[in-house]
Nucleic acid binder design. Structure first.
Lengths: 352, 352
DNA sequence: TTGTAAGCGTTATCAA
DNA sequence: TTGATAACGCTTACAA
């Protein structure tokens, strides 16, 4: 009876650090040094090792590195899923930064409303042992998740946190300045009676956006007019109602700036129902650049969040080790990124 | 000078299999047996071990398992990004199945048009050593990627492949039956003159959808009328043109079934321009259930692909080991999943 | 049914 | 500047 040879799954025995060391005529420790860009390796030795690496097509085994060392080369991305476009962009941004340093991204969708959402993340922290976790909103405010991460001393970066903004490293955009700039844009078109639809009172960004609007108006010598202010809740429906309130005003605004695209769309629909044409009779601006914003007619002028860039920055903070150092030193890390004003066709100078 | 004690990143020394073995009064091998659900462990021993595991909150180190064994407990998900909603649903589906078996998902966006897209995946295969890769369309047809995966003997599952449908395991939906059922639905509403907008001739699904339409009509004794057929290319614009062609017909159809939502939307816009109201004057049905489908007015009746379920099935084929066995045995694996008919308000019985 | 011992492929220690 | 050698925490022979 012939002997049955069991072969490993990957039929060709993978090339290891030993093969490289043999070929380069050095010890594995030296190969390791070159791989990790450590100092104290003679240039010619380094070169010889590098030659062997490429010649052999050597790929360090991540599991072995992780087991022996202190890094797993894995970053976790934790998100809830209300907005696929947001999550998708965040993933691209994070991956882009990860690739540069040979890191990989492990995704972990969680249910943000669940009290036990942290247990879904635990496997990533304790079994996979990711080197850090990026958390997108609204999960970036989940108390149990933050607590679990801190207890396990896992570095994390929050994207656009709302509450406890000084807790742990975070990356966000300048809502205030974005609203300021958008308001300035409308003022530049010649508008003076500008209505504003506020965001949900539970969200910090609502206040920052309102303050930006307020400041721009004030800088143009235009005091706040309460009858040009409406309260919204980030929803389409609340935008419809805010639109009704603002547009049935005897001296109705020539422009309305809503603190979210959803509400801006609601305003547009109200305007349409009232026979007002956009942007001729009314200019409308939104905030967020949702996919629908570019599909409606006329396409909505709005603010794009730098989602991609924020996620990349978050990955960078993790990979560079800043997050861990900040954790040890109790230093806060904050990176504020630039938004983008997306000018489409929903705004025009006021009539006559 | 006091001694500086360097402590590992995770301040609390992690609990290992040794701790569990000690507490349970067995050898680590027995703990390993229990962990991996191996046979030949006395029930009471098994219980004792399990007690120790929960009492200690033991979490096996994935890197160690991966290094020693043949599994990494990591599945890769490879996708291009034309459609965030699709990718997002696929991720949820894959993760759901992964969680059941303690697997995690590593994401890898690639540029499908790039000839060297496979090199982006190589790190996942050779460094991370994922246990398998799920590939979503259109990457599921990328020749270099499939070749690389096969050469490295990495199990993979293709979702909705178009070309070489017998190459490797795949999961897809029944385009034929979906088109058949949708046509039947229109026939059930009383339509007899039904126009059809064909999909892009380069896509296999176009033919399967057309065949389903054709068969349903034939089963109702309605022969194919060439003047009720229009060629489209999955785009909005091609839908506009197809709509013009079909609707300027002297005896115009009472319903139009387009092989994609994009084209259906184009048909709707043409109808609106011609003063036809939907669904009173014309019923329109689409295919794909894109996000826009539910936003337009009237909301579009369409077919939902079981993206979530397909990804879950793909993960299952990988995790269960079917994919690897199929690779060894050269057996094809195919799983066809059920679609869903999404009835919204764009279809109604024909007038009089 | 259980245990001993030898890896798995790296990084870390410490001596040369 | 280098290199033996010992971890790292598990699985897998193989033995008992």
């Amino acid at each position: 009876m012939p002997t049955v040879r069991r072969v490993k799954a990957t039929s060709v025995a993978a090339i290891t650090i030993n093969d490289v060391a043999d070929r380069a005529g050095v010890s594995i420790k030296t190969v390791s040094r070159v791989l990790n860009n450590e100092a104290n390796v003679r240039p010619e030795t380094r070169e010889r090792v590098q030659e062997a690496v490429t010649a052999l097509g050597y790929r360090p085994n991540l599991s072995a590195r992780s087991l022996a060392g202190s890094r797993s080369f894995l970053i976790g991305l934790c998100f809830d899923n209300p907005n696929p476009a947001y999550v998708s962009e965040a993933q691209i941004g994070a991956i882009t930064r990860c690739r540069v340093s040979g890191y990989h991204l492990v995704v972990e969708p969680v249910d943000n409303r669940s009290e036990t959402a942290d247990s879904q993340l635990e496997a990533m922290v304790f079994n996979v042992r990711v080197d850090g976790v990026i958390i997108t909103p609204p999960v970036s405010d989940h108390p149990a998740i933050l607590a679990m991460l801190e207890a396990s001393r896992t570095p994390y970066v929050r994207i656009s946190p709302e509450r406890d903004r000084d807790r742990g490293p975070s990356v966000y955009m300048d809502d205030y300045k974005a609203a300021y700039d958008m308001t300035n844009y409308l003022l530049g078109l010649g508008h003076r009676r500008i209505g504003f639809v506020r965001g949900h009172p539970d969200h910090g960004s609502s206040y920052r956006r309102f303050d930006g609007f307020h400041a721009a108006m004030a800088d143009h010598g235009l005091p706040l007019q309460p009858d040009l202010l409406a309260q919204g809740y980030f929803t389409f429906q609340s935008g419809v109602q805010a639109g009704e309130q603002l547009l049935r005003h005897p001296e109705r605004p020539t422009a309305i700036f809503a603190a979210s695209d959803g509400m801006a769309l609601g305003v547009m629909s109200t305007a349409a129902r009232m026979g007002l044409s956009i942007p001729t009779d009314l200019s409308v601006a939104g905030f967020d650049d949702t996919p629908t914003a570019r599909v409606v007619w006329p396409p909505l002028t709005t603010v794009r969040q730098p989602i991609n860039e924020m996620a990349a920055a978050a990955a960078d903070i993790l990979i560079s080790g800043e997050a861990r150092r900040a954790m040890d030193d109790k230093l806060p890390i904050k990176r504020m990124l630039d938004f983008e004003l997306i000018v489409r066709q929903s705004c025009a100078p006021p009539k006559a």
